[in-house]
Amino acid sequence: MTSTLHSIAELPRLLIEPLVRAALIEDLGRAGDITSDALIPAQQQTRMALNARQHGIVSGLAAAKIAFELIDPAIRIVVHKHDGARLAPGDVIAHVEGPARGILTAERVALNFLGHLSGVASATATLVAAVAFSKAKIVCTRKTTPGLRSLEKLAVRHGGGENHRFGLDDAMLIKDNHIALAGSVSEALRRAKKAAGHLVKIEIEVDTLTQLEEVLAEGVDAVLLDNMASDVLAEAVAMVAGRAITEASGRVTPETATMIAESGVDLISVGWLTHSASVLDIGLDFCA
């Protein structure tokens, strides 16, 4: 259900470039950067720095680099802090050198990707640190910004977390509405097992220990223990007793993550990491 990579595999440019291109087209509109075109001579060169203004983890450099390169291939990016590196205020992440007009045109799109994805990585790192005493892994969900799932899930890995399924097609996750429409936990599991291929994992969400008993009687690869109180969660993990991967979700914060991890769960899934993490403050500053 999760990534087991020991080193982080970066995304190929082929997957990132269309996302960056779409963002640039949105920003350029119908006439391009009329401000920079009016103020900056085409031949003017400059050197600027991507500077961290907060503590955090950097992510999104590939997208930022592509933004500059698509606007003007003559722009050069010299990276000093690679994705996954820790940042402190004042750290220079990279220098951007070349045609000034192109650098200013690409600036906002590059910073949008870099700030958002670094925010995801930084929030993940905070949760990972909160559960470092335990075996629990922090994982993201499908609650992602439309179009940015691959980049956001990569940012989670840069922050030390792991990935849950990428889409509806790489694993089965039976949720409460599936159970309601199937008629019962047992019937939902029987239908899933009948349809699943030999490489497809099955996970099911439960809200109560009674549902969990029914799941364990049928057997499953993983069980999602949703919004359970800490004492109930610990009892649920004890009931599973290693017969399935245990995942906890619901109202996870750096403070509650510690209590959730104490239950002995294998995974803690967090939706807000990808849809609501605060942007990390990163700026592009002129080098005098």
Rank of each mutant, 00 (worst) to 15 (best):
S3Y: 08
T4Y: 14
I8F: 03
P12V: 05
L14K: 15
L14D: 15
I16W: 04
E17S: 07
E17G: 04
P18L: 11
A22C: 05
A22M: 05
R30Y: 12
R30S: 15
S36F: 01
Q43V: 11
T46M: 12
T46C: 14
T46E: 11
R53P: 06
V58Q: 01
S59M: 06
A62F: 05
A62D: 14
F68Q: 07
E69T: 15
I71K: 05
D72F: 09
R76N: 12
V79A: 08
K81F: 01
G84L: 08
A85I: 08
R86S: 12
L87N: 05
V92T: 14
L104D: 04
T105Q: 09
T105Y: 05
A106N: 12
H116Q: 14
G119S: 04
A121R: 01
A125D: 10
S134Y: 01
K135A: 11
A136T: 07
V139Y: 02
R142I: 09
T145N: 09
R149L: 06
L151R: 07
A182L: 10
S186K: 12
E187Q: 15
A188F: 04
K193V: 03
A195K: 12
L199Y: 13
V206K: 01
T208H: 09
L212R: 00
E218G: 07
A222H: 05
V223I: 06
D226L: 04
M228N: 00
V232M: 13
A234L: 04
A234C: 01
A236H: 08
A236G: 07
R243M: 07
A244Y: 04
G250I: 01
T253K: 00
P254R: 00
M259R: 15
E262K: 15
L267G: 03
S276K: 08
A277H: 03
S278K: 13
V279C: 12
